[in-house]
Design a protein around this nucleic acid. Sequence first.
DNA 1: CATGAATGAGCCTTCATTCAT
DNA 2: AATGAATGAAGGCTCATTCAT
Lengths: 187, 187, 187, 187
Amino acid sequence: MIKDKEFMRERIILAAMRVFSKYGFFKAPVHLIAEEASVSKGLVFWYFRSKRELIIEVAKRSLPLEIIDSCLESGLSGEKILECIGKGYMEKYRDPVQRSLLLHTMALETLYEEIAKEMNSLCEEKLDEAAEKVFGESSVRGKVALRAFFGGLMCYILRRPKDINEKVFLKNLISIIMAGYENKTAS
Amino acid sequence: MIKDKEFMRERIILAAMRVFSKYGFFKAPVHLIAEEASVSKGLVFWYFRSKRELIIEVAKRSLPLEIIDSCLESGLSGEKILECIGKGYMEKYRDPVQRSLLLHTMALETLYEEIAKEMNSLCEEKLDEAAEKVFGESSVRGKVALRAFFGGLMCYILRRPKDINEKVFLKNLISIIMAGYENKTAS
Amino acid sequence: MIKDKEFMRERIILAAMRVFSKYGFFKAPVHLIAEEASVSKGLVFWYFRSKRELIIEVAKRSLPLEIIDSCLESGLSGEKILECIGKGYMEKYRDPVQRSLLLHTMALETLYEEIAKEMNSLCEEKLDEAAEKVFGESSVRGKVALRAFFGGLMCYILRRPKDINEKVFLKNLISIIMAGYENKTAS
Amino acid sequence: MIKDKEFMRERIILAAMRVFSKYGFFKAPVHLIAEEASVSKGLVFWYFRSKRELIIEVAKRSLPLEIIDSCLESGLSGEKILECIGKGYMEKYRDPVQRSLLLHTMALETLYEEIAKEMNSLCEEKLDEAAEKVFGESSVRGKVALRAFFGGLMCYILRRPKDINEKVFLKNLISIIMAGYENKTAS
DNA sequence: CATGAATGAGCCTTCATTCAT
DNA sequence: AATGAATGAAGGCTCATTCAT
């Protein structure tokens, strides 16, 4: 059945995510992934032409592209967009596996063209598009503000401080970004 | 002479930085580093007990710890600290080698205890200390603001947008952070 | 139908011949043969117990045994036999697939007992039998002459010189062998 | 010392010849060669970039190119050349290792460009050159005769008949070729 | 200090073969 | 008969590390 095939593929990907997040893409041998998925090593190569292909599949999934896309296309505007993105991030990267993978994936950019493209789109087009939608205009200040927003989120995700919970962090971050953007006199 | 010894060690480290930045820590074979430094492979292991040791040395250098330290100990206060840090970042990571290394080093955190500690200190203590010095008080909002600041810098460094130069970005970022922090009513 | 069964078996063998001639017996994966025959990999193993069995089947077919047999049993005598064999060779090995296979099969002799036997019979008994029938007596000189004949054919087949066509080559070869055998004084 | 390096390289080549002659180029794993040479597997790859490189080195050595070259350049003429080549062949391929390797190398022609070239030169230029030198003129008949000579040698080498020793075979073969060539009336 | 030959563990990948469907 | 998913055993090759010189 087609279902079976997709199911097995998915099973391998999920196992790979766990293993890659623990050892990094290049220190994780394929046989560990096979074991984690409880399949033979050969089967991994039945579903993925090469380790590289598996890495790229996992890496793409670890990026927040679809979060941003869905928030941008949701019809929301203003700081609601930031809320949407913020919540999406928090949810996705609450999982330590995803958090660790994100770090490893960011480093891949130097090595894999496919990942570099994905990150380009994420960090330039999407980000500028978001800036426009959030602030209702395209401006340097907006772009900077959005970078501060994204960066702030990233910072929180990568090193979650024990004394600030998700909601509080997000509320403050959005407030800082929105207020900071408005108050142009301060610049 | 002792000088010679230090000189050679330094030469190997610099070669390693170039090679690691290009291939990543784990895909860069030691013999490439030796070639880049124009020394024999054996010599690399005379100066560094293992590849791991060399990786850690290079990784530590790629972090912005000493920038932050020097700014915190400079006696500056308020947004002058942000300026100091911002300029330091821009300067250090203008070099694509450093930029690429930073990405790879961040991913190391999962694997090397030494790097994890360094990043812990950087992302928690130093950051909170900075927040206090910048805003003159210890508050959640301050910590969030500083994360937005750092994150914004990181964002800019990793993907330098063509249409925003360093100075403009920094001025806007600092202004947004400072203004956003002040204007608590917006939250 | 039985016909179908034989037909499919034949189809796989023909595909195997093409693939083996291109890649050699050991560098040709079974899945390529299956693809060439437009059947599934599993089916190849339904018709042949193992790859080895398929190799031997193909290898045997690439030898000129049945050519020699039919000429020896044809009732011909003297140089007519050489003509018969010569024409048979030319016809069979005009096909580059057969020519390439012959080379690969000859190398198999070291590895597969079955092929070694076949080649033994070919290169000793059959050859000596031919010598006797051609020259009307069993003599060392006759055996040598027939080896020169066979070897000459082989030489022509493996590297067909552009400036000598099949007929001319064969006429000259037979003439040389027959005349050389007769003229014992020259020895 | 340079001597040591060449010595070790040679040692590996000789081991490879023995192993390849027994298992064929593609069924002989590198680790067997290493064992045969009493070195580590890694060392084989220190001296030869790849297995392919080692194969080609061994294959080239198994061809009779230098025998033919030295006979053609020896200043000999007429059937003396055939004697020279014949003796060279007998000597070289008396060794079963060389004999087996020759078979395997001939099959390589289909796969490796380098070997194809070598065999081209051997079977076309060299052979035609020899024909001219032996018979004092360039003619189709001469070329055919020389192919019969070479082929006869090959035949003998590959399957040495027990009842014909080297000397007798060679004497008869040369006599047949020379007499057969002369006696044009027979054609 | 410096070199580079030598080692051996381990990795990615291929592929013959089996088997449930 | 026929398919193709699944297995596992090798195989080629890389590379960190050691060591004699």
